[in-house]
Nucleic acid binder design. Structure first.
Lengths: 301, 301
DNA sequence: TGGGCAGCATCAGAAAAACGGATGAGCCAT
DNA sequence: ATGGCTCATCCGTTTTTCTGATGCTGCCCA
């Protein structure tokens, strides 16, 4: 008679994954089942939702319109379940949150400590990862929310601003950097950089070009511990967000704000569009934002 | 894993009907099934939604909270189905609308004629009835919307103002009523009135008491044709809304506005809270409102 | 040009869920 | 007490859903 929630979930997953096969994986079903459900949904609605073609599917206008409304249905459905949770026998929650390494180094621990005091019954799981991974996991509903660098947005994700933090030039303590500097004074640069897949890589390169700081040589190192250790032991430089450094420079490193102009990193909080944030998750996000802001602010003045 | 739409529908019906048995009838299911579904829903949510007691059920606070959210889910779900309708193969709609006799006498036919021109593909079904019937049918989802006298509201119904129309004193043409009069001048009244179940009955009695118009005798007649015929043939009086009379007094009747103070009837448009109004239904409501307003306005000046 | 591959569709048997009649227990008014 | 009302529970039947195998298509690469 009318579309079931299962059909809607499978349709939404298919829409976002642009694939029945991937949708099936994500929803722990089989490709066969997804195909059948979408088909029966289309028959019931009397309109095609996808065009089947060249090794994949492409939403029709009807599919796009339906998708937007289905998001609201799923959102309302999840919100309904949340509404009774305070009355439930065991109102414990379980959070899974994705954070970039920049955030886990300094800001996470104090936020976590405060959170554990405030919410003794909430079990929490923090996943560290780079933006691509976190974005994918968040959209698939595996994470309650993530903090990632601002990006162009993506279907199935809600996002809001989380923090603006300055990027710092980081060097071995021997370099004795001043507290503020112009990057071009240190050119030609020998930089330890994240790989091309990392969102920050692009903006760092743009910044170097803009300030006229030529780059002599690059190492790609997608490992934060390794980057810091390498910079401490050599005279290579790297660029890292202030929220990552905080007051934990240690004896082997020094760092400096870059001016004229400054380079800043925008972080956003993303969550699956099809379910509302748990109140506990919102609370943790707020604590984390406070700590991140505090950490980053050490480099403001 | 998660509440199905079927469970939600059955829960909503149970909540509104305050009964599993009635909910089962309304949703074309059995009491047994409703009981089982609600139970499994409660187990999944970990909270009781109803208290089972003395020959019936009573929602718990959790049930009330959940109900509100479930309405949003069903509403969103119906809206999603509507969103694809323009793309569907056969985008015809079918309307069922409930109207009071006051509206069907003059205002409906012209509205219907205009509507049929504008929407050739929409099949329409108009049910005439008194407010109790129409309200119940609307809440049960059997009617897309109804026009009924304003009332205290009811769970599961959305309502908005439709028309304010003056009540008229109606008599045989022989009475030669002036165009405007004070009801008390015609006391002691012999009135043809609707039965106590009718919403208007109460307000007419209140009005008579307020204006000091004593009532000599009452006939209860819940039949509009019968009322008009009886009044035309005798010297009994009745009180009817202007929107019902329009310019169709005929040779045997006369009518007059009552002043100091005037008595007016408020009509509201009600619809099931769990689904959005079809665009076609909204269009018809608008046409009907225009015609009703025009009809009623004949008695304004 | 012809495998190999990846994607969706289809089918039919197996598994799961929903259904619904019968029955029971509690409550209330007669 | 008793009849009538409610909801809960049980269990055999029916219906739906799920899945794995297979088929079909178009793409990529040798």
């Amino acid at each position: 008679m009318s579309a079931s929630l299962l059909e809607i979930r499978l349709f939404v997953a298919s829409f976002e994954e642009r694939s029945f096969t991937l949708a099936a994986q994500r929803e722990h079903a089989t490709q066969s089942g997804v195909s059948q459900h979408v088909k029966s949904l289309e028959e019931r609605l009397g309109a095609a939702l996808f065009m089947r073609q060249k090794g994949g599917i492409e939403p029709t206008p009807a599919g796009r319109a339906y998708y937007q409304k289905c998001l609201e249905v799923l959102h309302a459905h999840a919100a309904a379940a949340q509404a009774v949770r305070p009355f439930a026998r065991a109102p414990e929650a379980s959070l899974t949150i994705g954070l970039m390494p920049s955030l886990t180094r300094c800001a996470t621990a104090p936020a976590l400590a405060r959170f554990l005091d405030l919410y003794p019954n909430v079990s929490i799981h923090i996943v560290e990862g780079y933006s691509g991974t976190l974005t994918r996991m968040t959209r698939a509903g595996e994470l309650d929310f993530s903090i990632v660098p601002a990006f162009a947005g993506m279907e199935g994700l809600g996002q809001k601003h989380f923090l603006k933090t300055p990027e710092l030039l980081v060097a071995s303590a021997r370099a004795q950097l001043p507290r503020v500097l112009s990057l071009s004074d240190y050119a030609p640069l020998r930089l330890v950089m994240p790989g091309a897949a990392n969102t920050r890589r692009q903006s760092i390169e743009t910044y170097c070009a803009m300030t006229g700081a030529s780059i002599a040589r690059i190492i790609e190192l997608d490992a934060m511990f390794g980057t810091l250790d390498f910079v401490a032991r050599t005279d290579w430089l790297t660029i890292l967000p202030a929220v990552m450094m905080g007051d934990k420079l240690g004896p082997d490193l020094c760092a400096a704000r870059m001016e004229d102009p400054s380079l800043e990193l925008d972080l956003v909080q993303i969550e699956p569009a099809r379910k509302p944030l748990l109140p506990e998750a919102a609370a943790f996000a707020l604590l984390l934002q406070e700590e991140a802001h505090r950490t980053s602010a050490l480099w403001d003045a």
